[in-house]
Amino acid sequence: MSLTSIDKDYDALTITALAEFDAAPEQVWQLWADPRKLERWWGPPTYPATVEQHELVPGGSVTYFMTGPDGETYHGWWEVLAVDPPKRLEFRDGFAEHDGRHRDDLPVSTAVVRFTGTAGGTRMEMVTSFLNRAEMDEQISMGAIEGAAEAMSQMDAVLAG
């Protein structure tokens, strides 16, 4: 599995996921840039994602929903802040109502994803930042770490084919 670690830093209010891939940075970048590839790994295996809108440009937005085993859908959004293919992506990530309205009652985080070429492929670092400890704790209690690990564990299969 390419995911090597997911660490919490309560002082910095961050969760950092590290992964190593036997693929070039341009290929790993496509896991984010291609909406069909993104939806093959963004949700945990039992909550597959469907990407509805995908504007991976500064000021653009990505909207999606994940479908649970019971058929219930859970909607989310990204506000794209920075894009530097195939090196860096930054976005705000939040929850949405079924009609797409942003939910104010759930935390919003900011993610910075960096792709670095290595001798054997690509190192990907995703740092998710929170405004405060309460929002970080809420995301963790909702299963954010386990969900991220399950979702990112699917990336190798998407890269393979």
Rank of each mutant, 00 (worst) to 15 (best):
L3D: 04
L3R: 08
T4Q: 15
T4G: 02
S5V: 06
S5T: 14
S5I: 07
I6A: 13
D7V: 14
D7I: 13
K8P: 01
K8F: 05
D9M: 08
D9T: 08
D9I: 09
D9E: 09
D11A: 14
D11Q: 12
D11R: 11
D11V: 12
A12L: 04
A12P: 00
A12E: 13
L13P: 02
L13W: 05
T14C: 14
T14A: 13
I15E: 08
I15W: 01
T16E: 11
T16H: 06
A17M: 12
A17H: 09
A17Y: 07
L18V: 13
L18Q: 01
A19K: 06
A19H: 07
E20H: 10
E20N: 14
E20F: 05
F21D: 04
F21N: 06
D22I: 00
A23R: 13
A23Q: 12
A23W: 11
A23K: 12
A24C: 03
A24E: 15
E26W: 03
Q27M: 03
Q27P: 02
V28N: 03
W29R: 10
Q30N: 12
L31W: 03
L31K: 07
W32K: 01
W32Q: 05
W32L: 14
D34N: 13
D34L: 02
K37T: 09
K37M: 14
L38E: 05
L38P: 03
E39W: 04
E39L: 00
R40N: 11
R40Y: 01
W41M: 05
W41K: 02
W42C: 01
W42L: 15
W42V: 02
G43D: 01
G43Y: 02
P44D: 07
P44R: 00
P44K: 09
P44H: 06
P45L: 07
P45Y: 06
T46A: 10
T46H: 15
Y47C: 10
A49L: 01
A49W: 03
A49N: 09
A49H: 09
T50I: 08
T50F: 00
V51N: 14
V51L: 12
V51K: 07
V51W: 00
V51D: 10
E52T: 13
E52D: 12
H54N: 09
H54R: 08
H54Y: 02
L56R: 07
L56F: 01
L56C: 04
L56I: 09
L56E: 05
L56Q: 09
V57N: 06
V57F: 00
G59L: 05
G59R: 11
G59Q: 14
G59F: 10
G60W: 07
S61N: 10
V62P: 10
T63G: 07
T63N: 01
T63R: 14
Y64N: 12
M66K: 04
M66N: 09
T67H: 08
T67K: 15
G68H: 06
P69C: 00
P69H: 04
P69G: 15
G71F: 01
E72C: 00
E72V: 00
E72Y: 05
T73D: 06
T73H: 07
T73C: 02
Y74R: 01
Y74G: 04
Y74L: 02
H75Y: 14
G76H: 04
W77K: 02
W78D: 08
E79V: 05
E79D: 15
V80L: 10
V80F: 08
V83C: 03
D84H: 09
D84E: 15
D84S: 13
P85L: 11
